[in-house]
Design a protein around this nucleic acid. Sequence first.
RNA 1: GACCCCAUCGUCUAGUCAGGUCCAGGACAUCAGGUUUUCAUCCUGAAAACAGGGGUUCGAAUCCCCUUGGGGUCGCCA
Length: 593
Amino acid sequence: MRTRFAPSPSGPLHVGGARTALLCWAYAKAHGGSFILRIEDTDQKRSSDAACRALMQDLHWLGIEWDEGPEYDGCGGGEHGPYFASQRLDLYHRYIDILLEQGKAYRAFEGPEQLEAARATARAEKRVYRYDRAALKLDGATIQRYLDEGRPHVVRFKLPNDEPIVVRDEVRGEVTVDPKEMDDFVILKADGYPTYHLAVVIDDELMDVTHVIRGQEHLYNTPKHVLLQDALGFRRPVFAHLSLILNPDGSKMSKREKAKVARRAAKEYLKAKSVEERKAWIAELVSLDKKPKSLLTGIEAKHKHRFQDVDHNFSAREFQSFLEGDTDEPAIAHLIEDKLGIDLPEVDVQDFRLSGYLPEVLINYLALLGWSPGHDIEKFDRDFLVTHFDLDRVIKSNAKFDRAKLLAFNLDAIQAMSPNQFRELSYAHYREYHPEFVEKLSADQFDMLALSPEQFDMLAAANHSRSKTLDDTVKSSQFFIMSHDAIEYEETKGVRKALCNGDPSGYDHLAAIKPMLADLTAWTKDAIEHALNNYAQEHADGKLGKVAQPLRIAVSGTTVSPAIFETLAILGRDAVLNRIERCLSNRKLSSST
RNA sequence: GACCCCAUCGUCUAGUCAGGUCCAGGACAUCAGGUUUUCAUCCUGAAAACAGGGGUUCGAAUCCCCUUGGGGUCGCCA
């Protein structure tokens, strides 16, 4: 048995697509069959090589390996190629000719504008638009004349009769469709490319695909495919239509979700700004977008790893229309994300990869979102999927994507790692997606740090238990790599309480601890721990919190950091003393005002 | 709007096909306690659902019908 995933390479791989691919793969593997990747690049305008590569990268990252298809890092190959629809044009035309000859299809000369006008009229009259078969009534001489003139035209499939079409679907049972609900659909476009319907039917037949597993949005296409298969004398594969993945608000999961969040943040940010400031800000974003991605640094560097359809080069006007909600262009949303330092909801596989989710966790969660193994089992790996997956437990209803649950799964997986594993994965992640972080860690106060040394081990270890994603450390460790001057002390209740309350106050403790730390013979975690514990015992009723919190604030500016002993050890003595001093002088500043 | 699909805690689901063992089980989220040098973890506990209405049946979350709600499709996109 053979399954296939047949995406169009027109954008990043969406989690919905990833799940379809996953379940196709799992089904094939569970039944000892082959899984095929076929690129359905029949839309010349929207397809791109970059998108295709990105797609394969994402599938590969997820561990969904195709036995046949385009070759990529050990995947692909096979005897049924080519695996790009765009390279199979002659094949499609062969079948088009047959259909034409047998009168099962016909040429139609209406242009897109003409059809759109007819649709608009139908809409205005509250009618359902169906193609009126005008071209079918053309006589042979006219058709010949049009062809001689070189008029652009499409080929339409002629619906054979009025018999209801019954499609057997493995998850939904029998689905019956009245042909009156359909019309003579286009199978060959004016540019000579087939439509999806024709390509998919021919490719599935020629590639011996036995099981078609795809999203529910294709359910309504199935009768068309079945009709085509019958007309061409092809066998009918088994069909299974998966339910959809929805946003938390119930809408179909899409780029809209990102746009919504980015738009809200941008509006919030721009709210208090003057017209001039707004213009300047937008101009800056526009220029940022124009920069070649390879030159971006720092937080902008994330762009490099995020595949986007094209280099857009937005104008200020396009930006405006995004803000007004007229477009949901993800590239603009990401520009805002990077500029404002906000987090957009992940919807594409690459988003999750960049956010530091583990592929095996995403796979687990995605599988669970369309299938259930029963027996209250919900944590499982690839092998389990392959041994247990079957179509009979595929879920019929749509599911909302719950990022909180995914995060919880990711946390569990990270906590289950050995310290070594976590360190290695973290480092690989930083190097790939946060090179500036690694760079700074190895410079500045950490001049001793290169690749594996204790300092980094300590940082990883100190963050392991508090990480939900591989990215968490980067986010929460910024204070490590900041220059001392850049540390700003938060003006929050917690900070004030820890620093000012009590007698002695946090400031007093800091002042007392500073010389003690300066005199420490060895700057190690154990030595620091020993000294601070002793101090707390003698001067703070044994309450470590009394000294840990002021220290934490002094070195990080906030009340949150890894465990204090480790934090100080990683930071190094000079940095710690320097920052304590800064914090203390800040006291003088605030008390004088 | 037309056609089609779907319907158990806030969310994902088990249970539905073979009606009783289900005053409905698990997970995430939430809330309350506890552990902890902060955050995050971790531990304990609580609250939380068979969409509504009709049937069928001794008996229905499970079968049938209607209503309601949600989703999909209606492209020379896939």
